[in-house]
Structures are given as C-alpha cells and as structure tokens.
Simulated scan of single mutants.
Amino acid sequence: MSNVDRWLLPDGIDEVLPEQAHLVEKMRREIIDLYHNWGYDLVIPPMVEFTESLLSGSGQDLDLMTFRLTDQLSGRLMGVRADITPQVARMDAHSLNLSIPGRFCYAGTVLHTLPRGPLESRSPISVGVELFGESSISADIEIIELFLNTLSVAEIGHVSLDLGHVDIVRGLIGEANLSVDLEAEIFDLLQRKARTELAVWISENIENEQLSAWFNKLPQLTGGIEILETAKAALDGAPEVVINALNQLETAIHSLDTSHLNIHLDLSEMPGYHYHTGIVFAAYIQGYGKALGNGGRYDHVGEAFGRSRPATGFAFDLKTLVSQGSCSQSLSLGIFAPFCPDSSRREEIKSLRRQGFRVVEGFENQVIDYEELKCNRQLVKIGGKYIVEFLS
C-alpha cells in the first residue's frame, strides 16, 4: 500500500470538514428542538447490538445492510446498526414499557454494507421520530405534519409529497388468495408498472373477473389528489380494507396544509411491502433524484420484542437536508487574542466566551493567518484596557 492510499477512505464513507460540520450540527440542534416542541423525547441508542435484537423483525433488506462482528467478551455476534427504528422499538418495548403513546426522536450515524443507490453515503446521519402505541389516523397525520415541518426547518421548499397505502394492494392480494411465489410475481409487475405483462399475468392467474379488473386498474391510479375520486369509482365494491385505506388517505390529505405543497399519489406503490402496514410517504424536490426522507406505519415492528404496539415514524439523512436546504450560514468569525502573559487578558477572554463569542488564543511566536483562524476581530490593549477591534 502506497502512502497516498493510506489516507483514502472506503467507498461510500465520507468525512465532514469544519464548515460543513458546523452547518450539520446547527441543523441537528434545530431539528431536535423542533421534535422536543412536539413532545418527542430524545433517545440515544448504542452503535452496536447483538444481532438477534438488532435485526428482529426487520426483514431481509436490513439484514443484508448490516455489518457484523464478534463480541470479544461474550463470543456472540453483534451488528453495527444500519437503521435506528428497530433499536427504538426495543427501547419502547423493554427499556421504557410505557402505558401511554411513546414519542421518541433520535439523531445518529448508521452504517450500511452497501450504498442504497449510486453515489450515496454508506454512513448517513439518520434523524427522525417514532410514535408507538397509537393506531388512529391522527397519529399518521401528526407524523406527516412533523415530517413536513422538518423540511421547513431545513429551508427546503417546493416539496412534492408522495403518499400511498400498502393496504390497497395488500387487500386485493389477500382477496385473491395467492401463493407466496405468485404474490412476489404480481408485486414485481406492479412496481415496474408493466401494464401489458400485468394484464397477461392476471388473465393467467386470477379467475375472478371483478378482481382482475381491480388489479388491472391499479397502475393507472397515480396522480394528484383528484385521483382519489377516480380510485373510489374504480375500486367500488373492493374489500373493506381497501376502502378503509382510501378513506384514510382522504382524511390525511384534508388535514394537511396543501397551499404550498404538491401531493402525488401512487396507489399501486408498495415501498417496504413486507414491513409497512398502512400509510407510507416520501418527500422529493426537483433536481434531486431520490427521496429526501421517507416514513410510514409499521405496526408489527415490536412483535419480535414481545410487545406489538401500533407504530409510525420517519427518517432523513441529516447531511442530505443540509446539502439540499437553503441554510448557508457559515461559521461565525471569531476574535483573535494574541499571546500575552497578562492575567487581565485571561479574564477578558473568559468574559467574552461567557457572552457567546468565539475567541481563539494565539501561541508565543505563532505565525498568524486570520483566514485560517476564522477571525475578523482582534483583542487589543489600549490605555490599559482590553477592547475588541475589527481587523482592517
């Protein structure tokens, strides 16, 4: 290995340098304060856990994304977290065991074995919330509103909110009583919007004419909020779970302030089909090719921990919010205090720092570069008194 190679980071692992780190931390504080104001308590789960706990009920996707290592104390297998939601579910089920709905928020680095997409980080800073113990549509609405408020704090405008409900497809599949293999086939066709292939598949595998018609209409049920009325007519007579899903989406949309929000519905979309259980959502902006953040309901997440409570939540990558937002406040420039063995100088520096000023002390014989020091003022002694002067 050459000397140059020694300092290279692994693909997908990034570092955050001072000016950007300042913005990331500022954003983190503002977002956590937002969540606190909504009643969400901050939790800090550990970076590693035993895999039987970390991956309980999380599905194969998260399993493949998780780095594993052997605990040198117990000999048991541990995993480095790739998602914080299962950890918070464990805390809700065992560490806290609340009788009321639990509202939690978090911000921490996660690690992925592979990037989720081209050029994506394998070490995002995940920030989000989880709400446990409330199954009503009011909980979904609260979570979506807080999701949108997070984007406002990040100063991200012209947002497109994608909404869906997994019970629409799941309800029709349940009515069809398909095998696991056939279910996987129609899931793939619906996600690819392969209408011609889907029509052929339906003719070969679905005998019920009404059910066949409903499945064929699903890929067409995409568009603005007006598509709900189209869906109600197209799926008239569908199983009750499907109709309830449409009604929930309608209730959620009517509860949101849509004056500055573009809402897009795709009623055949099923992100996290084997994980989510109700309303799902994601946020997009023009010019950014993937979701800024996503979330939804996942009522079975606590089953593996012996306490199945209704659950919903969302997560963002904090670094993405900073890079895509309008927050461009740079690090506040400080005050340079040249080296001088003077006790009154030390007292003045303490006073300035207590007032919230950034003060950088010089060393004896130090070469001074104010730009690198990030200072635009200097502490000087005039007439026996210390004052702060702007640098010329």
Rank of each mutant, 00 (worst) to 15 (best):
S95T: 12
S95F: 09
L96Y: 11
L96R: 13
L96V: 04
N97A: 09
N97W: 06
N97T: 07
L98S: 11
L98G: 02
L98M: 11
L98P: 01
S99V: 09
I100A: 11
P101Q: 08
P101I: 13
G102T: 15
R103C: 14
R103G: 15
R103F: 11
R103W: 10
F104D: 06
F104S: 04
F104P: 05
F104G: 08
C105P: 10
C105G: 13
C105A: 15
Y106M: 12
Y106D: 02
Y106W: 00
A107Y: 04
A107F: 03
A107M: 07
A107W: 01
G108W: 00
G108K: 00
G108D: 00
T109P: 07
T109V: 10
V110G: 14
V110Y: 09
V110N: 08
L111T: 12
L111K: 10
L111S: 12
H112M: 13
H112W: 15
T113Y: 03
T113D: 12
T113G: 15
L114G: 02
L114D: 00
P115S: 14
P115I: 02
P115N: 08
P115A: 13
R116E: 14
G117L: 13
G117F: 15
P118V: 08
P118L: 04
L119R: 13
L119C: 09
L119P: 06
L119M: 14
E120V: 08
E120Y: 06
E120H: 09
E120S: 10
E120D: 11
S121R: 13
S121Y: 10
S121W: 00
R122T: 10
R122G: 03
R122K: 15
S123P: 01
S123G: 01
S123V: 05
S123T: 15
P124M: 01
P124T: 00
P124D: 00
I125L: 11
I125G: 01
S126W: 05
V127L: 04
V127K: 06
V127Q: 05
V127G: 06
G128W: 02
G128L: 04
V129A: 02
V129F: 02
E130N: 09
E130Q: 08
L131F: 07
L131C: 03
L131G: 05
L131S: 03
L131H: 12
F132Y: 12
F132I: 02
G133E: 11
G133K: 07
E134N: 13
E134K: 11
S136C: 01
I137E: 07
I137F: 06
I137K: 00
I137R: 04
I137L: 06
I137V: 14
I137T: 10
S138Y: 09
S138V: 06
S138E: 05
A139L: 03
A139Y: 01
D140T: 03
D140P: 07
I141Q: 06
I141D: 02
E142H: 02
E142P: 00
E142L: 00
I143E: 03
I143A: 10
I144K: 01
E145L: 10
E145H: 11
E145Y: 09
E145K: 15
E145G: 05
L146H: 01
L146S: 08
F147Y: 08
L148D: 01
N149L: 13
N149R: 11
N149W: 12
N149K: 12
N149F: 12
N149H: 11
N149V: 08
S152C: 13
V153G: 03
V153W: 04
V153M: 04
